[in-house]
Amino acid sequence: MTQYPPRHPGVNIVPIHGKTPKIHETAFIAPGCTIIGDVEIGAGSSIWYNCVLRADVFTIRIGERTNVQDGSVLHCDPPRPGDDEGCPLIIGDDVLIGHMAMVHGCTIHDRGFVGLGAIAMNKSVIGSDAMLGAGAMLTERKVMGERELWAGRPAKKLKDLSDAAIAGMRIGVAHYAENAKHHAAAVKDAL
């Protein structure tokens, strides 16, 4: 894990409270992003245009080959009296987070999916290979099991996902990993 170059054009990297974001050298961070504090981003992951990752009060951890799409906001909550664990934001490997999502103090297991404009709140959990539908709101402490589709506001389980749906999500992960390489080259060439 290496620190992202602090002078990368168009990306705001903001250390705070003695914590500086740590971003793997193979991760793609698009111009317009702001990444603050105790954030770690794994190999091959991509953070797309105009995302905000703010770990000023606790931690944000993002695994490998995960993508956070344009305009998404990621935050966390600190430990407090009566809640010694706080609400870190923990995101596994091969996760898809759709455009304009709000992901706050929750856990998304490997290969989880957050749809366009969806919200996942403190202490909620998205299981492996599970999908939170577009526009859905997963309220505090709700737990989605593996391979489940949840939708609505508040989100509720609709069904178990088929093998074809799971395969489609994995194709999406591969697409974003490849597309990030093209965007990284395009951004570099534009300088």
Rank of each mutant, 00 (worst) to 15 (best):
E40C: 10
E40S: 15
I41H: 10
A43G: 05
A43D: 10
A43E: 15
G44W: 04
S45Q: 05
I47W: 13
Y49F: 15
Y49S: 04
N50Q: 14
V52I: 14
V52K: 13
L53V: 04
L53M: 11
R54A: 02
R54D: 00
A55N: 06
A55T: 06
A55G: 14
A55R: 07
D56M: 02
D56L: 01
D56V: 03
D56P: 01
V57P: 02
V57G: 06
F58N: 15
T59Q: 12
T59I: 05
T59F: 01
I62L: 02
G63S: 08
G63W: 10
E64N: 15
E64R: 15
R65M: 01
T66F: 11
T66P: 05
N67W: 06
V68R: 11
V68T: 13
V68D: 05
Q69D: 11
Q69F: 13
Q69P: 02
D70M: 08
S72D: 04
S72L: 02
S72F: 11
S72A: 14
V73D: 05
V73G: 10
L74G: 04
H75S: 03
C76T: 15
D77Y: 07
D77I: 04
P78N: 14
P78R: 15
P79N: 06
P79M: 05
P79L: 04
R80L: 10
R80A: 14
P81D: 14
P81H: 14
G82R: 07
G82P: 02
D83E: 09
E85T: 04
E85K: 12
E85G: 09
G86W: 04
G86K: 03
C87E: 08
P88E: 08
L89Y: 08
L89V: 12
I90A: 07
I91L: 04
I91Y: 09
G92Y: 08
G92P: 03
D93P: 02
D93M: 05
D93K: 09
D94V: 13
D94K: 11
V95N: 06
V95R: 13
V95M: 09
I97D: 07
I97V: 12
I97L: 11
G98E: 01
G98I: 05
H99P: 04
A101H: 07
A101R: 12
A101N: 03
V103G: 09
V103F: 06
V103K: 12
H104L: 01
H104E: 03
G105R: 12
G105M: 07
G105E: 08
G105N: 09
C106L: 09
I108C: 01
I108A: 06
D110W: 10
R111P: 05
R111G: 10
G112F: 02
G112Q: 11
F113L: 13
V114A: 04
V114G: 04
G115C: 05
L116W: 11
A118M: 13
I119E: 00
I119Y: 00
I119P: 00
A120N: 06
A120I: 10
A120Q: 02
M121E: 13
M121Y: 00
N122R: 14
K123L: 00
S124V: 01
I126V: 15
I126C: 00
I126F: 10
G127V: 08
S128M: 03
S128A: 14
S128H: 12
D129V: 10
D129W: 08
A130F: 07
A130Y: 08
M131H: 10
M131K: 12
